[in-house]
Structure formats: structure tokens, C-alpha cells
Design a protein around this nucleic acid. Structure first.
Lengths: 333, 333
DNA sequence: TTGTAGGCGTTATCAG
DNA sequence: CTGATAACGCCTACAA
């Protein structure tokens, strides 16, 4: 059985018969005589000494931790982002502290407040809704924050965003190119960051490309369950759509299900395009055509920006836009 | 703009004209005269004072952090578990430190070593493969660990596991009850904790219930992609299976896809049962019948066990088995 | 090269 | 009730 109590520099020093300063130096590869170095290393080894992260942090003023705040750990897009952040941090020796704040803006503000306790060196924030209070809290925060999602110009915060308009453009163009004209839009809640951006994107794209808009519907949430009813609505319209563009992949699966319920086929009768290109796009049957708004890339870039800023605090606020790409699969053949 | 530098007890004490001891007391709700309390609170407020988590940790010997180590942040089951842990921790003031170790046992051992730096108070470990080295490292660890997954009897570690045998029993019984006799098994890698457990479970159940085993196949990974080829194999057998039991939901989706490729229908020609009852089971079309091995519950219990032990170190090692349940959906109608 | 000592920001003990 | 002071474990001038 290993000793219950952690051993400290003092213990190692005693055992090696030297001062704690020498121990610290040896273990941090600072100059020391070979003989002392040897004694220290052996003592440390024998005691199973491991430096204490907390004490180090207090001294160094850094925690080597980065916080990631997401609304919902369950949503596939956030999972993608989490994974990307994890990978980006893999090479460094930062640890990841995960906070699931739920949809509640108040919870995010609480989180920002608690961050000022300094348990992390920086934060990647993925807000579902951006309120003025949140922006304010972000501005007031003592530590570097990178926000993923659209922010007002003057937010003065590092910011990585998708180009929803371009993404919707890709979706609609693709549908037009494959011969669809009457296109409907299945959105999530409009009072969210992605909901608002994607609706604008769809409207822009459909106007620009001169397609016939066969209806808008809005699910109460970006989930499969919430998507079924509005999808059925769209399909029940007098002039049925030839294609449905959906604001995310879960809604797209709901659309496919709804299409099939009416006895129609995907893609022959109704084509379906999703958005986010999450894992389920490939798993779905038929495999789902989806626009990748660069979730992984956005998260990766956000991590880079943050690491950057931790290295060098005095940088101007940066904004990065990640370009979308279309992944054509069976649902729009 | 907020002041760049965090203010400390000393700053508050100076401003309030009292000692740091008094400040600490007031802010920790220890007895103090109303007048001092008032002055301290005002000063703290004016300076935007927030106590430093690191300093607190050093003093208290606790970090208020719990580490969660999973093999792959992408796998839906792990996501389920992460969410459950997040929720379980929601009521407490523990933070969650997430480590994605990959499939590499060495990485998990490194993680255990680094944990001895004391950046967390406890660990929930979900190993994909349990090697002797890993068990050893777990035993040697200075901090409380709860392992999710099967462990040898004598591991002496808190442990939460699924009952794969019972789960497979539910799957096979359900298939028998719905009139299927020739049943095949699509597994993931056998040299993993779940792979081994589920294979044994299937063999036990099929023997006990006297069904005709229409083949075993093994995917190289628990993924959709890896499942396609072995699923096709099973279907190409001379006496085709009437049902396929799959070791997880991703493999089950692969099986459904493979069945359809051959022009057969699910569930009429071939029934498919998945395992884990992850989100995609409900999303799939047809919706997937799946055995819930209690991923969320296991994670929740693991978190409870850990919190428990953090409260009271001297507990005997506990082992909890979580019972499975079957969720019948369209894929076995 | 080595040791002494101070300090990172808290909390807690012990006098006053 | 309050204040001075000693830890927590580490790093690092500075002095020897």
C-alpha cells in the first residue's frame, strides 16, 4: 500500500540531507552538483515524490487549466467542439475544465463570476443566447475569453464564428443544382444565436438564388423530438416542398422521418439537407447531406486563439470567420 | 475597464481599515461586530474582491475538482456518461476536469500519475481495456478512484458495472418472444472490457434460451464504419439470421444499413437490437430497439460513490451492479 | 554550488 | 471581537 500522505519537498530534502531549495533546483533541472542531484533524485524516487499542482499554481499565478462552457453536453455539435478543444489542448499541458451551463443565460453569468476565482487561466465560451448582461460579464471578466458564435462588432472580445449565410448558400445552391425549386426551411428557436443566424442565411440565400420558398417552420428546440411537428406542418402545405433545408442535423432527421410518414421518399420526392455535419449525418439512412459550418474547426481555432493570448496578453481582439463546406450524401441524390 | 489585477484580502483589509483576519472572518460568516462586517463588505464590494481558488485549495488541501477520464469523447455512450456526471456534480460545488485518454492504456497510466500532482480530489475512470499495469496504477494512486466497468474481485477499488449478461438476456428473450429463432451476434473488439463482457453475455443467453446462433462477427472498433463489413458477412451466411444482436448502437445502425443493402427489410426480414440505448436509437429510422445497460445510471452512481468517499475516506471498497432494461422500438416489431 | 528566507493568498490558532 | 502570525507547498532572490 502506498503511503497515504503525499510527500513534500521537505520530506525529500530531509531524506537527501539537503535543503529544500536544492531539491527544487534539482527537480527543475537547475544547476546542481552531480552528487547532490543524485541524492535528491534517489530520495524523490524512493518517496514517490510528485510536486503539488496547487502550490505550484499559487506560486506561478497560473493554473494550467482552461475552462470550456457549453450549453448542453448532449448536443452533437457541442460534442464535436469539445472533442476538438480536447485535441487542441492535447499537445499542451493545459487541462480542460468542463462546464455545462444549460440554456440559462444566468447560469453562464454565474460561471463567469466564479471564473474570477481564478481556477482557470482562460475560457472558451459557447453561448446559445447572447444577452447584454452576458456581454457585459464577458467584458468585465479578468481572464481571457474566446467566444464561439456571432458577437456585436464592438464586443472587444476574441471571437470565432461560422458563416451561416455562406453555409445556407451552399445548401440552397446544391438543391438548385440538383433540380429542386420549391424549398422549405426548418429552423430551431429564432431567439438563439444559431437560430437567428441560420434564418437570415436562408432568407438571403433563397432570395439571391431566386428559389420559391415553400414555408418556414420553427422547432422549439434544436432536437429531433421538437422537429417532428413543424416538419409535418411543412409537408402538409398545399404546395409541398421538393426539399427541406434544416437548421441542424437533428432537425433534418426529424424531417426525414416526417417525409416517410407521408409515404414519400427521401431523396426522390423530398430532398433533405442538414447542418453541422455531425456524426449522425453519416450514420443516418439515407446518409444525410449536410453543411459543415466548421464546428470542429471553430473550436480548434478558438483554442488556438486562447493559447495565443495566454502566451501574450497584449493582443488586439481578433475575429475569425470559419468557412462552411457541403458534404453531399444520399438525402439529396 | 475592470482593474487588471485581482484584489486580495490585503487590499480589502487596507481599504476597510481592519486586519486580514477580520476580512476573512466576515467573508466566511464567522462572528464579527456589525460595524466591522459592514466596512469589510463594502470594501470587498468596491474592490470587486473574489477569493482566490488556488490559495484556498492550498490551504484547505482540496481542489474541489473531480477528474473524469474517458477513452473517447466522441462515443455516444461516453457522452451520455459525461452528461450524467455533469448533472450529478451540478448540485455540488465540484468542478469537472475532463481527460480524453484515447484507447491507449499507457495514456491512462500517465493520467493516473499526473493526478498525483493533486489537481483533483478524485477520479472517475472509464477504461476501455483493463491491464494489470492499469490496475496497479489505480491501486497505487493517492486519491480516490471509482472505476466504471468490470474489474477483478480483488481490485479493492470502488467499482460500478453493467450486467451485460442480463442485458444480452433481455435482448435475446425479446427476440425469441417476437418469434425469432436464428440469431446472430455482431460484436466490437473482444479484447476490450465491453467486448469481452458482451460476448460472454450473448453466449450465455443464447445457450440458456436455446436459440440457434447464426454466427458471430467482430468489428475492429465500436463504430458504424467498422461494423459494415462484419454485418455483411453475417448476412451472407447460408442460413441467414432472423435477427442480429449488436454490441452497441453504432454497430446496430451498421447492421440495419447492411440489411437494407441486401434488399431485405428491418424488422420484417431481419430484426436488429442495439445496446446502450444512446440518443441515436431513437433518432434512427426505423427507431432502434436497444438494451440500456444503464450508462447514465452507472455514471451517476459512480459520481455518488466518489462524492461519498470524499466525504468519508474510510469506507470499504464498494461494487455496484446496474441493471439493464430493454427499450423496444420499431427495429424488432 | 548551496542554504536561508520571503512570499504567492488563504484560513485558523492564539493572544490580547 | 479583533489582530498578529503561522502554516499550506512551492519557487527564487539573495547571501554565504
Amino acid at each position: 500500500m502506498a503511503q497515504r500522505r503525499r510527500s513534500t519537498l521537505v520530506a525529500v530534502a530531509e531524506r537527501a540531507g539537503v535543503s529544500i531549495a536544492s531539491v527544487s533546483r534539482v527537480l527543475n533541472d537547475l544547476p546542481a552538483s552531480p552528487e547532490v542531484a543524485e541524492r535528491v533524485r534517489r530520495a524523490a524516487e524512493e518517496l514517490g515524490y510528485v510536486p503539488d499542482a496547487t502550490a505550484r499554481s499559487l506560486k506561478a499565478g497560473r493554473t494550467d487549466q482552461i475552462a470550456l462552457a457549453v450549453a448542453d453536453v448532449g448536443n452533437p455539435v457541442y460534442v464535436t467542439m469539445m472533442r476538438a478543444v480536447t485535441e487542441a489542448l492535447g499537445g499542451t499541458d493545459y487541462r480542460l475544465v468542463l462546464s455545462s451551463t444549460g440554456n440559462d443565460p444566468a447560469a453562464q453569468i454565474d460561471l463567469l463570476a466564479s471564473l474570477n476565482q481564478g481556477y482557470a487561466d482562460g475560457l472558451i465560451l459557447i453561448p446559445l443566447r447572447v444577452t447584454d448582461e452576458l456581454l457585459d460579464a464577458v467584458r468585465r471578466s479578468r481572464l481571457p475569453i474566446v467566444v464561439i458564435g456571432s458577437l456585436p462588432e464592438d464586443a472587444g472580445t476574441d471571437n470565432v464564428r461560422a458563416d451561416s449565410t455562406a453555409g445556407m448558400g451552399l445548401a440552397v445552391e446544391h438543391l438548385v443544382a440538383t433540380g429542386r425549386r420549391r424549398i422549405a426551411f426548418l429552423n430551431g428557436p429564432r431567439d438563439t444565436v444559431p437560430g437567428e443566424a441560420r434564418r437570415r442565411g436562408f432568407d438571403d440565400a433563397s432570395a439571391r438564388l431566386g428559389v420559391e420558398v415553400a414555408g418556414h417552420a420553427e422547432a422549439e428546440d434544436f432536437t429531433h423530438q421538437a422537429g417532428l411537428a413543424p416538419a409535418r406542418e411543412l409537408l402538409a402545405a398545399e404546395t409541398a416542398p421538393e426539399a427541406i433545408v434544416c437548421a441542424n442535423d437533428l432537425l433534418a432527421l426529424a424531417a426525414i422521418k416526417a417525409v416517410r410518414e407521408t409515404g414519400r421518399r427521401v431523396p426522390e420526392d423530398v430532398a433533405v439537407v442538414g447542418m453541422d455535419d455531425s456524426d449522425i449525418a453519416e450514420l443516418s439512412d439515407p446518409a444525410l447531406t449536410s453543411v459543415d459550418l466548421g464546428a470542429a474547426e471553430r473550436a480548434r481555432v478558438a483554442a488556438e486563439l486562447l493559447l495565443d493570448r495566454l502566451r501574450e496578453r497584449d493582443l488586439p481582439a481578433r475575429r475569425v470567420v470559419v468557412e462552411p463546406s457541403l458534404h453531399a450524401r444520399e438525402s439529396t441524390r
